[in-house]
Amino acid sequence: MNRRNLLLSSVALAAAIASPLAQAVEQPIRLIVPFAPGGPLDVTSRVLAERVRDTLGTVIVENKAGAGGNIGVDAIAKAAPDGKTIGLATVATHAVNPWLYKKLPFDAGKDFVGLTQMVRVPNVLVINAERAKELKINSVADLVAYGKAHPGKLSYGSGGNGSAGHLAGEMFKQGMQFTAVHIPYRGASPAQLALLAGEVDFNIDNLAAASANIKSGKLKALAVTSLDESSLLPGVPALSKQIKGFAIDTWWGLVAPAGTPADVVEKLSKAFSDALKDPETQKRFATLMAEPVPTTSKQFDDFMAAERTKYGPVVKASGASVD
C-alpha cells in the first residue's frame, strides 16, 4: 500500500470509529424553547447558544409554544437521546405543571436528564403606584393591614390559574393570613397591563418583566420573593423577613431526553455551565435582571425534584387544576 492510500485509509478508519459524542456535537444542536419568542427565556437561550458555538458548534433555537409549555417539553422528551435535541425546563413545566395538569404526555421526573440550571430571576411583589398612594401602602405590613381591615377589597392578578404568580399570591396570603381576590388573566403580560390600569391592586411578577415599570414609578416594589434580598433591586426587603422560609423564584435550565449517554450529558453540561460563567454572558443576562446559575447535571436534577416537592401542596391548596 503506497503512502497516499495509507493516509486515505487512516482517515476513513478514524471517521468510522469517531465517538458518538463527537458525532453529536459536530451536528447542529436543536434547543427547544417551549414558549413564544421574544421573552427572557428565549433571549437568554439565544445568548447562550452564541456562547457555546466554539465548543459545541451551531445551536439552533426553536420555539415550540403552547399548553403552558407542555407541547415543547413533550417534544424534548420524545426526541432521540443522542445530544442533538435539548431544551428548556422551567418552574412551570417541571415543578408546577406535574401537579396542575390532570394528565401530561411526559413524566417531568423520569423523561429528562438535567444539563445545568441556567437562570434564577427573583419575583417581586408590586402594587400599582397610584393605588399605593391612595391607600397609603408603603410596605408589606401596610398591604397586609389593609387587607385584614377590609376583607375582600384587595385583588391581585396573575397569568392564569395555577401560574407561578397565582401560586405565589396564595402562599403570600396564607403566610400573612389576609384575604385578597385572585383575578386570572390570559398570560403574565395581560396581568401586568391590568395592574398598570388599576384593575387589580398587586401582583407577584418576575423582576425581568416588572423592572421597567418599577423604574418608571408606575409600580411600587414592596418585597422580593427570593430567600434573601436581591442585588438587582437594592433596598427592597425579602418577603422571607415576614414569612420565614418564603422563597419563590422564576428559574429555567437545560435538559436532554432521558437515556442520553453520560459522556454526552457531561460534555453538554460543561460547555453550557462554562458559558454561563463567562463575564460577557453574565453582563448580557444582567440587562434582563437574570442571574446565571451554572450547575452540574446532578445538581439541576436534584433541584428540580425539590421544586416539584415544594409546589405539590401549594397547587393542591390553591384548588387550581387543568384538564
Rank of each mutant, 00 (worst) to 15 (best):
I204E: 10
F172A: 05
V121H: 10
A262S: 13
R131P: 06
G109T: 06
N203R: 15
A210L: 12
N128H: 12
E50A: 09
A18M: 05
A256M: 06
A89V: 01
S9K: 00
K267Y: 06
F300L: 08
K241S: 10
L125K: 13
R30W: 03
A320L: 04
K110E: 06
T85H: 09
G159N: 12
L115I: 12
I71M: 10
I86G: 09
S321Y: 01
S321C: 09
G217F: 12
G68W: 09
L219I: 08
V47G: 03
H182I: 09
G175M: 12
E62V: 14
I76K: 11
G83D: 07
E307K: 13
R3N: 07
D111T: 01
T260P: 06
T90Y: 13
G114A: 10
V25H: 01
A188H: 13
M304P: 00
Q299Y: 01
K267D: 00
S269E: 06
L8M: 04
V200H: 03
G169P: 13
V314D: 05
I127A: 13
D274S: 04
P28V: 04
S273K: 12
M118K: 13
K78C: 08
V264Y: 01
L288G: 00
F106S: 01
S226M: 12
V113C: 05
A188M: 14
P234L: 10
H94S: 07
I60W: 07
D323S: 12
V52S: 11
V224L: 11
L232Q: 12
L232I: 05
L233A: 06
R30P: 00
L135K: 11
K153W: 03
V91F: 13
A238S: 15
R131T: 14
K78G: 02
L195G: 13
D74L: 09
S9D: 01
A191I: 11
A108I: 06
P237C: 09
L21M: 03
A89W: 05
S9G: 10
A149N: 12
M1I: 01
S318Q: 07
E280V: 07
N161V: 11
I29P: 00
A49G: 15
A16S: 02
L219R: 13
S139R: 11
L268I: 08
S10V: 00
N63D: 09
N203C: 13
L135H: 04
M289D: 02
K84I: 08
M1G: 04
A108L: 08
T55P: 01
Q192E: 15
S10W: 02
A256N: 07
L196Y: 15
Q27Y: 06
S155E: 08
L196F: 14
Y156A: 06
